[in-house]
Design a protein around this nucleic acid. Structure first.
Lengths: 368, 368
DNA sequence: GTGAAAGCGCTAACAA
DNA sequence: TTGTTAGCGCTTTCAC
């Protein structure tokens, strides 16, 4: 047991303690410890030894107050329980840690108010930057403000037009179009799309209120909308002009994908295939199909976004559009860190490749 | 636009700014803002208005440096991609936010070294407390040290004997025993257990090296082990003395539950039912069953821990032991916060109820 | 009830 | 290269 005369046992060692022990000034100790400025090899070593002996740990709070950097990132996603966001978050935390950053997590449940509150909290905590899967692509004032105030923002999964921030996404339109083409290639013509969108539907526009068509949100850009456009493009390409008959979109918290599917299956001419825009929706589709006594893929074909664990374990295994979830998170971290470290390049939009994985959930339509 | 003569536009407002604007001293402003000490209603209101006008936001870093409290919790789990931990983490972040705390997240992949590193990082960041699903229940020196140094720790999902920390768990033994009883009640006698355990198996003890038995880790307590004991108890209770014939445990990163199951199914007298100790293992079992051309539940019955989304959407829906995942996280947060706020009661061990949910994955054994 | 002054632990100009 | 000095923004005695 070493006796540290000048330092009460309970209190953690500070720079003055280390400096005293090493017989140098505070600044030299600080320079040696934080590794900046110039310090003689000799002094450096004595400081290192003293720090070691005293079990010195820098007070990161004090350091952050001076440097203005906390080495903490904020991650704002819809719901960590959604496998897509779980994977993305895993990618974020891993990449962050590897780069010497920690991450503060916030869930929004696709609610803009919650997102706004999260940004506020996170900024109050002085995070160095924000990774956000925005709940809405239009109401992004809080994100723009953060960005402008020097707290860089990178958008994940969704872009926001007019917000000069980096983004990391996949080609939703192309991937959706490709998936629907697979269904078309198998001979399907009555192909449904089931999705949940972030914003509430706009006011009823009268003419649009056809029995089958669901009004779409006004958000100019959203993952869901892009996938819908990809779906429509594929149908049009196949000569099917009526692209909205089997289109069903609900709102988070308000509609259940299983109900949306049940409606479709109750139609006089029900769809023979369904394209689900994410794995949780696919679960709802599966559920509804089961309740209707329909078998996949014989009675109903299915393809979905997101390759979750269960997709390859259930029977039939389900064909999916796999997104590189962890990579999405890791790329976002890298973009963000270059910004934090001062890069002033124009906004960079990274688009990652998806992969269609063919399994057993697509068959020709019944009676074909 | 108000002109703030004394404050450059770029710099955020500070207490001196607010004080000046309100015509009071810094201390009065501080007292009014942080709501302590005594301030006259009049001064209080003037300060409030000035702060509002200037868009004042307290510098939490500076405050933390003084108060020693960051209002930040550290959450250390195995893998956020595991639905169990995703749910727990969701419960943690929600409860924390509701109580005015944020959470820093760390994944360990069941690796003690990673856990140790995470604790170090988190303590360096001055978290007010730690919620840990410990990778090992024996090597807990770093947790004990944190606790002793005034950084309270609450254990989640797993207890650690000898560590005087609060814990929040479920009755794994009882729940496992109950689940296996369901299988027994359906007429099964050859019931397997498939699990993955945290620690590496101990050195070969010779006699124990029966072809069928898998050596178990030496960890005195672990979720997996408790479930195994519950399984054995149920079998013994049913008069089956040979409890380890169909017991298969692997190690994280080393074994694949599907392979473990495949071994079982290749036995001359294969099991007719499987008890999986978590949902990710159940997926492996399902996979292996499919590869063997076995149908659930006709050829093989299945019951698993954890009620994940897919368990109620696949066909057949799988019977499960549901854990109150979010509640587990929320309780941990509450225990932790009472500690942080100074409670000095003896360690408290909260045990939450599980719920057996009967679905369609259990049938009588084939040929029964 | 209020203000003056000290100080948390650290970094960063500036001199020496 | 090194030490001195001055803060960062805040809370908190301690007088008044």
């Amino acid at each position: 047991m070493t006796t540290n005369r000048s330092r009460p046992a309970g209190r953690p060692a500070t720079i003055p303690d280390v400096a005293r022990e090493a017989g140098v000034s505070r600044s030299t100790a600080s320079r040696a410890l934080a590794d900046y400025g110039s310090v003689s090899p000799d002094a450096r070593e004595r400081v290192r030894a003293a720090a070691e002996k005293l079990g010195y740990r820098p007070n990161l709070l004090a350091r952050s107050m001076i440097t203005g950097r906390t080495h903490t990132l904020g991650a704002i996603v819809a719901d960590i329980q959604n496998p897509f966001f779980a994977g993305v978050t895993r990618g974020i935390t891993d990449a962050a840690r590897a780069a010497g950053y920690q991450v503060l997590l916030a869930n929004t449940d696709e609610d803009v108010a919650a997102e706004r509150a999260a940004v506020k909290m996170l900024r109050d905590k002085h995070v160095d930057g924000l990774i956000v899967a925005p709940a809405a692509t239009t109401e992004t004032g809080h994100l723009a403000a953060a960005h402008a105030a020097g707290c860089p923002v990178v958008l994940l999964d969704r872009q926001a037009p007019g917000l000069p921030a980096d983004s990391v996404t996949v080609d939703n339109h192309g991937a959706a179009q490709d998936a629907v083409r697979r269904l078309l290639a198998a001979g399907h013509r009555r192909i449904a799309l089931v999705s949940l969108l972030g914003s509430a539907p706009p006011a009823d526009t009268g003419a649009e209120r056809a029995a089958a068509a669901t009004p779409l949100p006004t958000d100019p850009v959203s993952t869901g909308l892009e996938r819908i456009e990809g779906y429509r493009a594929a149908l049009r390409e196949a000569g099917l002009s009526d692209t909205d008959t089997y289109l069903r979109t609900g709102t988070f918290h308000r509609e259940d994908p299983a109900d949306l599917t049940a409606d479709l299956l109750a139609l006089p001419e029900p769809p023979t295939a369904v394209f689900a825009t994410d794995s949780m929706i696919a679960l709802g589709v599966l559920s509804a199909a089961r309740d209707h006594g329909l078998r996949v893929p014989d009675d109903l074909s299915l393809v979905t976004f997101d390759d979750t664990d269960w997709a390859r374990a259930v029977r039939p295994r389900v064909s999916v559009v796999a997104q590189p979830v962890q990579e999405l998170g890791a790329r976002a971290v890298h973009s963000l860190i270059t910004r934090i470290e001062g890069a002033t390049r124009p906004p960079e939009h990274t688009v990652l490749d998806t992969e269609y994985i063919d399994r057993e959930s697509i068959a020709p339509p019944p009676g074909a």
